[in-house]
């Protein structure tokens, strides 16, 4: 991200606006779905799915991960692995 030509950044700005629109729409959708009172399992799955899409948009476009250097992706992959291990921890009591 060191070379920023004027055009490139203007293109970025247009992307940011569309991402914002998508995030706002997804927020409304996830709230609307919550009023449908789905079964707990389905509600969790849908809400987390929508949140994951929103999160990915933020990370990919606002945080520029889509065009980020390899080393940062490697560090994040490593972190993600340990993050998942940490989230699996509640399972330990049950097996």
């Amino acid at each position: 991200m060191s070379e920023h030509s004027q055009e490139e950044i203007s293109k970025h700005v247009r992307t940011y606006i569309s991402v914002f629109a998508a995030l706002a729409a997804l927020t409304i959708i996830t709230v609307a779905i919550s009023y449908l009172h789905l079964s707990t399992g389905l509600a969790i799955a849908v809400a987390l799915f929508v949140a994951t899409i929103k999160g990915s948009l933020v990370v990919a476009y606002f945080m520029h991960l889509i065009s980020e250097a390899k080393i940062i992706r490697y560090i994040l992959i490593l972190t993600a692995i340990f993050f998942l291990v940490l989230l699996l921890l509640p399972a330990i009591g049950h097996f």
Binding site: M1, T27, T30, V31, S34, T40, A43, I44, A47, L48, V50, A51, K54, G55, V58, V59, F62, M63
Partner: peptide, 25 residues
């Protein structure tokens, strides 16, 4: 500014997950 922005987007990201987890489920 970019670093401050990255931090700020992360805080936003956390909220994106906190919101459904605490309020909607």
């Amino acid at each position: 500014i970019e670093a401050a922005g990255l931090y700020w987007h992360f805080v936003d990201l956390v909220w994106i997950f906190l919101f459904p987890v605490l309020y909607l489920l």
